[in-house]
C-alpha cells in the first residue's frame, strides 16, 4: 500500500507516457476496429429498425400502430410487466434482506439458485410451464376439471415472464446491501424503531437507486421477452399476443412496416432504458451495487 499522504502530492495523470500505452498507429487501429465492430453490430441494426418503420412514410407508421391487434398487444405487454416486475421487486428486496443481513447455512447455494433462470434457455423456461399446466401436463387434468386456464392465456404469460426476469432485482440488491452492512439498521433499532420502520426509513432510502436500477433492467426484459412467452402464449391475436410476439406475426405476414413499427416502440423502450441506466450509473454510481454484471 502506498502512503496516501505522499500520493496526494502527485498530480493526477492519465499516464499517457509512451512506455505504458501503445504506439499511435496501434491506438488508431484498435479504435478503428472497435468502432467498426460497434457500428456494424449495434448501431446499424438500431438504424435499420427506425429506417424500415418509416420506409413508407409517417402515415403508414401511425396507421400500423393504430390497428386494434397492435393496440391490444401493447396493452397486454404493459399488463404483464405491471404484474411481473413488482412481484420480482418484492422478491428481490426480501431475498436481499435475508441474504445480506443474516449469516445462515446454505446462503451461497441459495444465491446460486436465484441466478439459475439466467442459465436456462428462454424456450425451456416456457416449456417447464407447459409440462406443468398443459393438457398432458402434471396438473393439466386437475386444472381442466376446475375450469382454471393458465396455459395459452395471460396467467401463463405472466408466469413465464416472472421466470425469465426472476434474478434481476435480487442480483442488484444483494451485493449492494451486503456492502452497506447492517450498522444503520442496528442504530435505528437501538433508537426504538421497529423492524418495518427500520426498513422504510433506513434501508429503503439507502438502496433506492440500486432498486430502481434493478427494476429498470427487469422491466426491459419483461416487456421484451420472446422465447419463453412464445412457448406459453398460443399466439391468439388480440388476446395472448404480446408486442414481441406481434412483431413476429406481422413479420411473417410480410408486413414489414407493421412489424418494424411495433419493433420501433420496443427499440425506443430499449433506448430509454439505456439512457436512464447510464444516468443512474453516472449520478449514483456509488449507491448502485459496486459489482455490475448486467
Amino acid at each position: 500500500m502506498a502512503d496516501p499522504e505522499i500520493k496526494s502530492y502527485e498530480p493526477y495523470r492519465e499516464s499517457q507516457s509512451e512506455a505504458v500505452t501503445e504506439s499511435r498507429p496501434v491506438r488508431v487501429a484498435a479504435m478503428a476496429v472497435a468502432f467498426a465492430f460497434l457500428a456494424i453490430f449495434l448501431l446499424l441494426p438500431l438504424i435499420v429498425v427506425f429506417n424500415e418503420s418509416f420506409a413508407k412514410g409517417t402515415s403508414a407508421y401511425t396507421e400500423a400502430l393504430a390497428s386494434p391487434d397492435t393496440r391490444s398487444a401493447i396493452r397486454l405487454t404493459l399488463l404483464v410487466a405491471a404484474i411481473s416486475v413488482p412481484l420480482n421487486a418484492v422478491f428481490g428486496i426480501s431475498a436481499a434482506w435475508a441474504i445480506a443481513k443474516f449469516e445462515f447455512k446454505g446462503k451461497a447455494f441459495l444465491t446460486t439458485l436465484i441466478d439459475l433462470p439466467f442459465s436456462v434457455s428462454p424456450v425451456i423456461s416456457g416449456l417447464v410451464y407447459v409440462l406443468l399446466f398443459g393438457a398432458q401436463g402434471l396438473l393439466g387434468e386437475w386444472l381442466k376439471a376446475h375450469g382454471i386456464v393458465i396455459l395459452f392465456a395471460v396467467p401463463g404469460i405472466v408466469l413465464a415472464t416472472i421466470f425469465v426476469t426472476f434474478p434481476f432485482v435480487a442480483r442488484e440488491l444483494i451485493p449492494l446491501m451486503q456492502e452497506q452492512g447492517s450498522g444503520d439498521e442496528e442504530a435505528a433499532l437501538s433508537l426504538g424503531a421497529n423492524g418495518w420502520q427500520a426498513f422504510w426509513y433506513v434501508t429503503l432510502p439507502n438502496v433506492k437507486w440500486g432498486l430502481l436500477y434493478g427494476v429498470l433492467l427487469c422491466n426491459a426484459r419483461a416487456m421484451g421477452e420472446f422465447g419463453a412467452v412464445s412457448v406459453v402464449s398460443g399466439h391468439i391475436r388480440g388476446l395472448t399476443n404480446t408486442m414481441p410476439l406481434h412483431v413476429e406475426i406481422l413479420y411473417n405476414e410480410y408486413n414489414a412496416v407493421g412489424a418494424f413499427a411495433v419493433a420501433s416502440l420496443l427499440a425506443g423502450l430499449a433506448l430509454v432504458t439505456l439512457v436512464l441506466k447510464t444516468l443512474l450509473e453516472m449520478r449514483y454510481g456509488a449507491e448502485i451495487a459496486a459489482t455490475r454484471g448486467h
Binding site: L38, L42, L43, P45, L46, V49, L217, A220, M223, G224, E225, F226, G227, M243, P244, L245, V247, E248, A263, L266, A267, L269, A270, L271, T273, L274, V275, K277, T278, H294
Partner: peptide
Amino acid sequence: AMVDLPFALPTAV
C-alpha cells in the same frame, strides 16, 4: 452505454 444495447433490445427486434 451502447455496449449494453443487446441486453436492452428485445431479441425479436
